[in-house]
């Protein structure tokens, strides 16, 4: 299996899996995954396939959905602290990890309207850690300051909050978030990217360590698991994603 055969989605899933397993982050025993997050879902199934005990609750499963109290149960679980890790994205994300799922321009998105904030204004506060994920890495998405705030990246002392973003994963790189100074730092670069190319594509300032390593390549074992048991687990909830990312390859 040559490195050239690795798809970007597979690299991203592996990069996210390594963040899930980061020993410096609070432990993740239960991860919930909202609608339309196939790559984070693949990452979490990979963590399981690697032998780590992780309960993965997929909100959008049609059969054997993990929730039996309706769509409020996800938020009730988060309220109690029974969800350790969640994934959020954003139409805009800024350098303080504020996320905007509302729109751009004047309230409520007179320039470009996004679908809306979903549960982000609760989940971002009550989950001990959040991995931000957005494949598009461009100045229009990663902005100096979001036009509208669905959920803030940090909160002042006294406001009840269990955690913040752990990291931001994009199609170009991985940033780590530092809540103490409310800034991102560059953690690793995906193939073909440089510090300069990431800087040019990023609207916000971020810290750059002296040495920025490449995002580690997926191992043979990780690729085999992604294309085997992970693909099987993904087929029912994410059929289109599986057809696009895995099926062509599995037929080869």
């Amino acid at each position: 299996m040559s490195a050239a055969a690795i798809r970007p989605e597979e690299r991203l899933a592996v990069a996210i899996a390594r963040l899930v397993l980061d020993p410096e982050a609070p432990p993740a025993r239960h991860v919930a995954i909202g609608a339309a997050s196939p790559i984070p879902a693949a990452a979490c199934f990979l963590v399981r396939a690697l032998g780590h005990p992780l309960r993965v609750s997929l909100q959008q499963r049609r059969t054997a959905n993990p929730f039996s109290e309706g769509s409020r149960e996800l938020f009730d679980l988060a309220g109690q602290g029974r969800i350790d890790l969640f994934f959020l994205g954003g139409g805009q994300i800024d350098g303080q990890a504020n996320i905007n799922l509302i729109g751009t321009g004047e309230w409520p998105g007179r320039e470009a309207r996004f679908p809306g904030s979903f549960g982000s204004a609760l989940m971002y506060f009550l989950t001990p850690r959040t991995i931000l994920f957005r494949e598009e890495h461009s100045p229009r998405v990663l902005v100096p300051r979001v036009d509208l705030v669905s959920a803030p990246g940090v909160s002042p002392p006294g406001v009840y909050r269990r955690g913040t973003a752990q990291a931001l994963v994009t199609g170009r790189c991985v940033f780590r978030f530092h809540p103490g100074r409310a800034r991102f730092s560059l953690l690793s670069l995906h193939p073909g990217e440089t510090v300069e190319s990431v800087r040019a594509a990023t609207g916000f300032d971020f810290d750059i360590p002296a040495h920025v390593p490449p995002t580690p390549e997926p191992t043979e074992q990780e690729l085999a698991l992604l294309r085997g048991p992970v693909r099987e687990a993904m087929l029912e909830p994410y059929p289109e994603f599986c057809a696009r990312v895995f099926d062509r390859k599995s037929a080869a």
Binding site: S71, R72, F75, A78, G79, I102, G103, P108, G109, R110, E111, A112, R113, F114, P115, G116, S117, F118, G119, S120, A121, L122, S150
Partner: peptide, 25 residues
């Protein structure tokens, strides 16, 4: 995206009150 909703917000023809899922529940 929901196209008629998006167009109505841009045109300003819809009164919109944004919420978050757990608040509505």
């Amino acid at each position: 995206f929901a196209p008629r909703f998006t167009a109505a917000v841009r045109a300003g023809t819809l009164r919109l009150r944004d919420a978050t899922c757990p608040a509505i529940h």
